[in-house]
Write a protein that binds this DNA or RNA. Sequence first.
DNA 1: TGACAACCGGAGTGATCACTCCGCATAATC
DNA 2: GATTATGCGGAGTGATCACTCCGGTTGTCA
Lengths: 197, 197
Amino acid sequence: MSPPKPAAAPDGGRRPRADALRNRARVLEAAEAVFAEQGTTASTEQVARRAGVGVGTVFRHFPTKEVLLEAVFVAQLGRLATEADALMSAEDPGAAFFAFFARVVDHAATKNAFAAALAEAGVDVRATTAETGQELRRALGSLLDRAQEAGAVRRDIGLPEILTLLVGASQAAEHVGGDADVRARALAVIFDGLRAP
Amino acid sequence: MSPPKPAAAPDGGRRPRADALRNRARVLEAAEAVFAEQGTTASTEQVARRAGVGVGTVFRHFPTKEVLLEAVFVAQLGRLATEADALMSAEDPGAAFFAFFARVVDHAATKNAFAAALAEAGVDVRATTAETGQELRRALGSLLDRAQEAGAVRRDIGLPEILTLLVGASQAAEHVGGDADVRARALAVIFDGLRAP
DNA sequence: TGACAACCGGAGTGATCACTCCGCATAATC
DNA sequence: GATTATGCGGAGTGATCACTCCGGTTGTCA
């Protein structure tokens, strides 16, 4: 049943052509850049132009704009979750937690669609983002647990509150944007409120 | 100085007809409701239907969708500023400040376009909203000053930081929406961070 | 009440967008 | 190199939206 040479695809499907793989990656990268610069209302044609392909190619790999957006979100959230995991082995749990929080907010101040991605990850609207969102929440929850055990964060709040604060801070950063000093001081207020009394 | 019968319009313009005034108010009210329910992407036709008028009427009174949105924002921000002014005479300045903050966030959790209005008022994108935005900022600034003088709020932050936090909390409330308990606890964190040490 | 200007309704217009379709190019396999 | 299925490009399609225009209506004032 198994052919001698051609490496079989994981599932029943055939292995895709090399240029198809290349173009898929190109489109995803371009979509991330375009949505970060212009928001999620940017047209699919702009993504195609940026990727150097035709619109047909974009829609072949991502049959719907919604699917494309989801793929971008999953990529961003996945990278975040990885960063959070890396911070799990830091020596100071409190510093690690706050550093991650600040990192996310800084990121949101630059990338335009990112706050929306976070917000969706918080409420799990789509089925596809659910998995990655859960991964992020698990990682963030671990950071929070360690910080609370170390006495760096108050114990009377949980992951939902943290996520709400994180989404809010990110969205505020995206809209206020410019002044980094204001952003830093506003973030300091939240951090002070999070510390154990 | 006052003419016998026809009340003169404020400026050089003529006094508009009674039905025109009535329709303008109807449209504004409908727009506020529709945008609150469906967000700012709702179509102008929906606003017209809700108001019981034709699209032509909507565009006669508000020549652009942007202008219509601005008018809605100005109305909401104006009401907010009035509420803030009313709280200026409260006996407990700290309680007044925090109550207003919470009031705004609660409002944002319900009305859909409201957080966007706040965000714009914070950065003054449009010329028209600038005036009302400034009014709101002035009122909020007064509340903040009194609260700081009473020792209820730390002194090392200013109005820009408060506005950033307010916008962030409002936007988070709009997206998280549902769980009022989570919202309350997240807000409590910000409040604790704002209190004087 | 009559006359006129102001105002109204809603079909029509042009632009934009997500998405499709098919003739052509090309990677994979012999 | 020949063959073939997979993938590509981009003009085309239908839907939606903001906005316009004009024949009919209505408020206003004499």
